[in-house]
Design a protein around this nucleic acid. Structure first.
Lengths: 213, 213
DNA sequence: CTTGACAATGATCAATTGTTCACCTAAACA
DNA sequence: TGTTTAGGTGAACAATTGATCATTGTCAAG
């Protein structure tokens, strides 16, 4: 494949990009308008050049029928090299029915995959996602219906944790000051602030929130 | 979504297959020829039905501009570990520098992978994620630093949209009552409610929020 | 100085393609 | 019996779109 001029590269990028955005290819006049050409023929020239250099293919006379000739043919434009490690996370519906300090995989209602860079968890741990029920954490901007990604690990003061209370898993703030016994705190001024914790059973620490709109 | 007739299902399947094979969408006469219709209007009728049932979308008057609207129900009962269909979403940093009504892929700062069942978007559309800056949507529970997953499509009244205002992409509520001209609305009582929209440039509709804790 | 690539204008043409109108058939329905 | 819904014919129309003509200008290489 030969070298492209700057303009040709721009056109090619635009075409790829247009398809990526819209799901179909641009017309010649779409390209013309994008670059502010006064004539469609300006586009035609570039397309002919790109065809000659075997960067694109077209069906003569037919509208919006491009084919991009990428040597590596990635489906999406420019997937960066830094292979992001992806965590595959089961979405749990109701984990309260499971073992007290374990997650019951039967409760899986879906899967969520988030890469590490974006959300910052460790792939080593077996993270899972929880659908939030209730309003106990609205002051921490976590709302009913949100999905919270939980990483099973020990909690530190200030962490938001998924914990078992009365046989039900809820989201609470974990508070531990000095050597005092830890307690849980709801982040909703209409809820009781403190939860008596006889047997503290923390499932894990919240690392991210996902909400469908 | 309503049930399709056999014929409608056949047409829909053909359109999808055609795109799969050719990389672009069929023209009406391509479909006509495939089914041996004597009139293009036979196709038109089915397309209208499919649009009414919200299975497809089209750009009126423009050639080969289909969009398939699947609720993404993979009909495989036995789903192997790795078989979950995953949407690979580029995370955009600053998209204002790109094309006026398009997203600049160079602005990619990461990737996010979310599967379809969990977040409920279509894999056909080219979704992308945006990092939210500013507080203009805090009353819709979207905060500074959140990542919002945007699906490029036309906005309806009440949607949260990513739109270009003053060369900057912001998140706003899209309001369109009846036949009145649409406008944008910030969801923050400290912000001006209405935005004067001379040239409304909607990048897409917000489908999900992802926040790292 | 000339040649050839690259880039673009402006006008025009023709094919492709989406759209619409009038009209038809058959089955389902109430 | 009339009515609706799905499916279809046939013709004509108009918008979109790709293709082509002649022409201009720049700039680097030979």
């Amino acid at each position: 494949m030969k070298d492209l001029t700057t303009r040709q590269q721009e056109i090619l990028t635009f075409i790829e990009h247009y398809e990526w955005r819209n799901g179909f290819w641009p017309s010649i006049r779409d390209i013309q308008e994008q670059f502010g050409f006064a004539s469609t023929n300006a586009v035609m020239g570039h397309l002919r050049a790109l065809e000659k250099k075997e960067m694109i293919e077209r069906i003569p006379g037919q509208a919006r029928t491009f084919r991009i000739n990428r040597p590596d043919a990635p489906e999406k434009p420019e997937i960066p090299e830094d292979a992001t490690e992806v965590v595959d996370i089961p979405v749990m519906g109701d984990i309260a029915a499971g073992y007290p300090d374990r997650v019951e995989p039967a409760g899986e209602i879906g899967r969520l995959q988030v890469d590490i860079q974006s959300a910052g968890f460790s792939s080593r741990r077996r993270s899972f996602a929880l659908q939030v029920r209730g309003e106990s954490m609205v002051d921490a901007e976590i709302y009913d219906g949100d999905m919270v990604i939980i990483e099973p690990r020990d909690a530190y003061d200030g962490d938001i944790v998924a914990a078992l209370i009365d046989g039900e898993t809820t989201l609470k703030r974990y508070i531990q000051k000095g050597s005092e016994p830890p307690y849980l705190k709801a982040e909703n001024k209409f809820y009781p602030e403190l939860y008596p914790v006889t047997e503290l059973c923390v499932q894990g620490v919240a690392k991210a929130v996902v909400r469908s709109l």
